[in-house]
């Protein structure tokens, strides 16, 4: 079936699969597709153009992701590859896939608890965050700012383990 398609379309589809499999260097169980960072893959006059969006403005992982996408595609034989960045629309955890959330929890990071639009008002109402190790809801936020910009730091009052929470953004 694949060889019957127009070469250009087939290339983009293939390139998209390759790019989508690149993992987040900070949270290697998530692909950049799970994370919602991969925004677009297209063919621009024979050049494969991949568009990424940073999670947070200062996220240092974005440059690594760009390099990894370039390496993955060139390893597959693509000669002309470009990675663009876009800030708009601004990234949100609402774009994280359900599979990605499940993988996060299995990895020991509590996934976002709700959709970003539900947070409002000057004093954000926080939902209970479930401990990814023991499942208890008896947890508390130690710090809004965790090991990376996208995570907050929690501790579980039941099993006493600290854990990261991928914060709703």
């Amino acid at each position: 079936m694949v060889e019957q398609r127009q070469p250009r379309v087939a290339d983009v589809e293939h390139a998209r699969r390759i790019a989508a499999a690149v993992v987040d260097p900070e949270v290697p169980v998530l692909t950049i597709d799970d994370l919602g960072v991969l925004r677009d893959v297209r063919d621009e006059d024979g050049t494969i153009v991949v568009t990424l969006t940073p999670t947070y403005s200062g996220c240092p992982a974005i440059d690594q992701m760009r390099d990894d996408v370039l390496l993955a595609l060139t390893a597959e034989g693509y000669r002309d590859v470009r990675v663009d960045f876009t800030l708009t629309p601004a990234w949100t955890t609402d774009w994280m896939s359900e599979a990605g959330k499940a993988k996060l929890e299995q990895y020991g990071i509590a996934p976002p608890t709700h959709r970003a639009g539900e947070r409002s008002g000057p004093i954000p109402l926080s939902l209970g965050v479930k401990c990814p190790r023991c499942g208890s809801l008896r947890t508390r936020e130690v710090s809004r700012f965790g090991s990376t910009a996208c995570k907050s730091h929690f501790e579980c009052l039941a099993c006493l383990e600290p854990f990261d929470h991928f914060k709703v953004h």
Partner: peptide
């Protein structure tokens, strides 16, 4: 970590 994270956001801006 918090102040470092805030500084990183600002550096991104």
């Amino acid at each position: 970590m918090a102040l470092g994270n805030i500084a990183l956001d600002l550096l991104g801006h």
